[in-house]
Design a protein around this nucleic acid. Structure first.
Lengths: 230, 230
DNA sequence: GCGCCGTCGTAAGGGTTCTGTAAGGGTTCG
DNA sequence: CGAACCCTTACAGAACCCTTACGACGGCGC
């Protein structure tokens, strides 16, 4: 998400409040920077101060709305009806008056974000007859539900979200076990085997998990890519 | 749209303001009437006063959200952070403090409506011989009425509105008990068992509720959900 | 070609955490 | 006062993770 405000205090307050909640936070001090940043950044929510130097807040909303449907929450010291109505007309999703309480802003952020979830495509990835529904943490193979233990699922998730990429032992251990296990390669071997068994993946002729000796493992890229290489 | 308020003045004010804008307006004076009306009415927006006699506003939001994604704008005289955050948590889309200016309410209505998109699941869901009427809070199994305690019902509701999804202990506790119980896993075990008993669901060979050890539970996904995704 | 060595796949067991289950007391409400 | 419901605790069995051990395979130096 992106926070646009010329008051560094606000930026800092919002940033620290949000980082505890697992969000990635970008900031900008004025409208120009924000509009410059937005086309390339992958932002799912904008918090925008109306009283910006340079380009006005309303103009930022209009320009942003011309190409993006990203939710916008407006912050403003202005209580006036005209400003509020104008902001909504321009395409804002919510309007919060300064000074505001952080819990309320967080709640409003969740509210607008919840509306967006439905529009997003469900994150389901497929490989051959394997189907991983990342939103539901549900795995199917050949149409049948496949039960994985928590650790096995974390491993599988690491693989299918990085198909074709070489994943080192260290990286996998850190992702599935957390830091502190980075050197316990033997655990990785054991769990990779269990996962392979459940996926009917023969290490000698892998369908999914390819061993990269001395380095790590790799989720086999799509067969089409495979064919393109060979 | 539906306006719920026990103050006839508000009802009249909103109604006259809106009818100039070509909306069809239903009204209700309390939560019971509103919840009774909603399953059959074709409503695309709800404006809800928090300070209702009888069922509280928060409870109305929660019940409505169990089967409908219709936008909800809350009106309230209460300024307190706690009320606001709780309303958003329950599923409100916006929160307007009384007294309010009508142009702002209209602008906020347009804003939430702009985000609206289809897919409201019907107020009655079926799984095998189980039938849950989310609008009226009725449960039938094999054609016979099944009595659930309030807590059991909240649990069941959480499940059937998220079929196939892994629901963590924490999430379920928060949804059925409220925040503050997030770590009391043992209560969840006890109530899951009672619910299972009433649903004739054997934990060893579950028809409905699948245990995900170490994580939570999952309402058994519909087999034909597979086809719906693709 | 041959042996050495590191890495990998595989099997199995123990310990710990998690789950299902039963039972009892407390509270609320009619 | 009784009924219904919720909270709380205890314990046995199951699920899961950690840990170790061993043979197979392949690369490398000689």
């Amino acid at each position: 998400m992106l926070v646009v405000d010329d008051d560094p205090q606000i930026l800092r307050a919002v940033r620290t409040s949000l980082q505890g909640h697992d969000y990635e936070v970008l900031t900008a001090g004025n409208g120009e920077t924000a509009l410059d940043l937005l086309p390339d950044a992958d932002v799912d929510l904008v918090v925008l101060d109306l009283g910006l130097p340079g380009i006005g807040g309303h103009e930022v909303i209009r320009r942003l709305r011309s190409w993006s449907e990203v939710p916008i929450i407006v912050l403003s010291v202005r209580e006036g009806q005209h400003d509020k109505v104008e902001a909504f007309e321009a395409g804002a999703d919510d309007y919060v008056t300064k000074p505001f309480a952080m819990p309320e802003l967080l709640a409003r952020m969740r509210a607008v974000r919840r509306r967006l979830e439905g529009e997003r495509h469900p994150p389901v990835v497929r490989f051959d007859d394997l189907e991983v529904d990342l939103g539901r943490q549900l795995v199917r193979i050949g149409g049948a539900d496949l039960h994985l233990t928590p650790t096995e699922y974390r491993l599988l998730e690491a693989f299918v979200t990085n198909p074709g990429k070489l994943l080192t032992h260290r990286w996998l251990l850190q992702r599935a076990w957390g830091s502190g296990y980075a050197t316990e390669h033997q655990y990785l071997r054991v769990f990779i085997r269990q996962l392979r068994a459940k996926l009917s993946d023969d290490p000698a002729r892998p369908r999914f998990i390819v061993t990269e000796a001395g380095l790590g493992y790799r989720w086999k890229p799509d067969p089409d890519l495979d064919a393109a290489v060979s």
